[in-house]
């Protein structure tokens, strides 16, 4: 009986971990990621799992002025995944790539905050929040431009008040602005398709 309970717990833990991993893999399958990286002139890839975030937090000991605010923000997060590709010329990725990424967050848990599609200029902008039982459990940003593709996935309880604190840190102004935006437009700020 005990063995069954332990197996069940281990199974649930494994499923949760696989679930987190799937989120990232679903966004950008490994092969697609490789293709994009091969075509891009500049690539920024950051994969920070829960354990990596915890490890990094240990080294934010307050010696630098922004350590405390960043530490507070990342504590409790399940992961931060960032992919940023810059291309020398447009047309290095098709709309199907954007669609594939969008599909991965097309579940009822993901609530759109901002959705704007500018067909004329070939730009797509999306900001979604993951809401589970009324609680904020993640944030997703997709910014697709002809020569740039940015995907940000933050899993876990994103503390908006902590994002606000980062506003005053060097180069992190907009993080603060989004906390205000979320309160102001908790529903959807959906831009029109032009």
């Amino acid at each position: 009986m005990k063995l069954k309970i332990v197996s069940l717990i281990l199974g649930v833990v494994a499923m949760v971990q696989v679930g987190a991993a799937q989120n990232v893999a679903q966004l950008l399958p490994a092969q697609l990621e490789k293709d994009l990286a091969a075509r891009a002139s500049e690539v920024t890839e950051v994969t920070l799992t829960k354990s990596m975030l915890g490890f990094a937090a240990k080294f934010m000991d307050g010696k630098r002025h922004d350590d405390a605010a960043v530490k507070q923000l990342i504590e409790g997060l399940d992961g931060i995944y960032v992919r940023e590709y810059e291309f020398d010329k447009p047309g290095q990725y098709g709309p199907e790539v954007v669609e594939q990424v969008r599909q991965a967050v097309s579940t009822s848990e993901w609530v759109p905050l901002v959705r704007e599609q500018d067909r004329k200029h070939g730009e797509t902008t999306e900001v979604l929040m993951k809401v589970v039982n009324g609680e904020n459990r993640g944030m997703f940003i997709l910014e697709a431009e002809p020569r740039e593709l940015t995907i940000v996935l933050i899993l876990g309880p994103v503390k908006m008040e902590d994002l606000g604190k980062l506003k005053h840190l060097s180069g992190l102004g907009a993080l603060g602005a989004v906390s205000g935006a979320q309160h102001a437009a908790h529903g959807t700020h959906t831009g029109g398709s032009k």
């Binding site: 950051v46 960043v70 900001v127 940003i141 940000v152 980062l166 992190l172 907009a174 602005a177």
Partner: peptide, 18 residues
């Protein structure tokens, strides 16, 4: 450094959204 990079990219994306 990776955390800071991730936050900077996030910030830049949100800046553009704004």
């Amino acid at each position: 450094e990776q955390v800071i990079t991730a936050l900077r990219v996030t910030n830049r994306a949100l800046d553009n959204v704004e």
